[in-house]
Design a protein around this nucleic acid. Structure first.
Lengths: 273, 273
DNA sequence: GGCGGTTATTTTGTGTGATTTATAGATTTC
DNA sequence: GAAATCTATAAATCACACAAAATAACCGCC
């Protein structure tokens, strides 16, 4: 009694998307000359398989395709999207690599259970923030940040090199000048956090934080877009910096904790209006 | 019909591997009837693209291919491995999805800088533990665990449901009976941690912990293999369990911290002989 | 009638070759 | 010298064929 027939009947809501998907895919696949952003290396820039993976990934995350659901077979999918089977298959491989689908002969390709999705994969996080993400998820993400980042700051304070201090000071100067309203300012913010993480001398922590950091920078854009008046983040950053420079682990931890709480509050407020 | 004799390129430091790679690939691709294990859903079981991705992934992690290095082009690679371009390309897509390579026309496929690898991806972690991983990495991983898991335990203590308590108690009983020497015992250990993580009610944290948890369970096998005499882990688990059941966050955090320190010590000792 | 093994069918997996597109690097132009 | 243009190369895409795997249907058998 598994699932005798795929919920094909109610598929209209899906096929209406599919009609325009092909067009959208090719639109989104054309590389927009690195549209303004500058910071994000999007891994499969402008490639068809990448664009399709992103589209399917977003659809899965938003629940258009649900856990356990079986996607139409390769032939049908690729022909209705008007792309080659190869491109389609490569897109599926990408999603499989992120734990979101699983394919086997005869059975087809099915969406795996949510617990197996690599939610902290940088791209998956990016897809999550393509549209307004669920509040629960944002909350969970900040809760995780609140666990890891202060600890990271503490380690950084103990292990940082003088070079790293210099680099952070430089980024901080740019932030002061540019604020988070400009691309350069946001880049400096990311760079600041990046060097801070490098200073922990812990690869695993670095990998985690850079994923989350990138995702959180999307929320910064949300905030900017929603015109939510956010506090000036520079003083918070400065306090963290001072503590790390002084090698004071306890203080660094505490300041970072406070910085993240602020950021979370700002983000929550942005989502509420 | 086989291939029309691939162009035997000159033997270099790398091609010595390549000569046997094709054979090894197909050996490792044959699904060994889910060989005994039971727990690991290996995502691309027995598929050629999966086996190749794994092989290349391991080679990259071990430094056979280095950051910034450019792989031979598709044609040469696939023909020298005696596999089709499709399979090769799909393998590359998998690696690209994990941030380990990046391919563009004209340039070719190059290994990205290490900072961009998704080291916390479950499969990447698995590849890391295919052979004895670098001590630094194991240290970093335990340091990360030491940050996240105690915090997770604290949250779990505050949020767990009675059902989850029951489930954990059950796993603990199995562990007592089986120890970590048996597959069933290790499975119960994983299940215990899994439920604990579920109890945090934080998807992001859960995703992280399950990745790391799976990887760490490989070290358990190392320990068993190296006959390192490890302490009995049950009392530690029991203390954590009691604290979580009692809803005592502080105690849960502290017990978990101690549990992980023990596990780390045991692992270090196993690697040293 | 229920059961064990065999065959059919469906879907992904793999293989091949042709064609198109993107782009680093050389070349030319101003 | 800098900017625009050309060119060669490698990936990207496409199309089609066939193999392998896994489920579903079948069939004979007791």
């Amino acid at each position: 009694m598994r699932k005798p027939a795929p919920p094909e009947s109610a598929g209209e809501d899906k096929s209406s998307d599919i009609k325009t998907l092909s067009r959208r895919l090719k639109m989104s696949a054309v590389r927009p000359h690195d549209s303004g952003s500058g910071q994000s290396h999007l891994m499969y820039q402008g490639r068809l398989h990448g664009a399709l993976a992103r589209q399917l990934g977003v659809d899965i995350l938003r629940g258009v395709y649900r856990q356990g659901e079986i996607l139409p077979n390769e032939i049908d999918s690729s022909s209705s999207l008007d792309i080659s089977r190869s491109a389609y298959r490569e897109a599926i491989r990408i999603l499989a690599a992120k734990g979101m689908v699983e394919s086997r002969p005869k059975t087809g390709t099915r969406v795996t259970e949510r617990a197996r999705w690599n939610l902290l994969d940088p791209e998956v996080l990016g897809w999550m923030f393509e549209t307004e993400p669920p509040h629960d998820f944002v909350k969970a993400l900040f809760e995780l940040r609140l666990i890891t980042e202060p600890a990271a700051a503490e380690l950084a304070a103990q292990r940082r090199t003088d070079e790293q201090i210099e680099s952070m000071r430089h980024s901080l100067d740019i932030m002061k000048r540019e604020t988070l309203q400009t691309e350069a300012g946001r880049r400096a913010d990311l760079e600041f956090h990046h060097v801070l993480i490098q200073a922990t001398d812990n690869e695993a922590l670095a990998s985690l934080s850079s994923s989350i950091g990138a995702a959180v920078s999307w929320t910064t854009r949300y905030k900017a877009r929603h015109n939510a008046l956010t506090r000036d983040p520079v003083p918070d950053h400065e306090r963290v910096f001072e503590a790390v420079a002084a090698g004071d682990g306890r203080a660094a931890r505490w300041c970072m904790e406070s910085l993240i709480r602020m950021a979370h509050e700002d983000t929550e407020r942005a989502f509420q209006n």
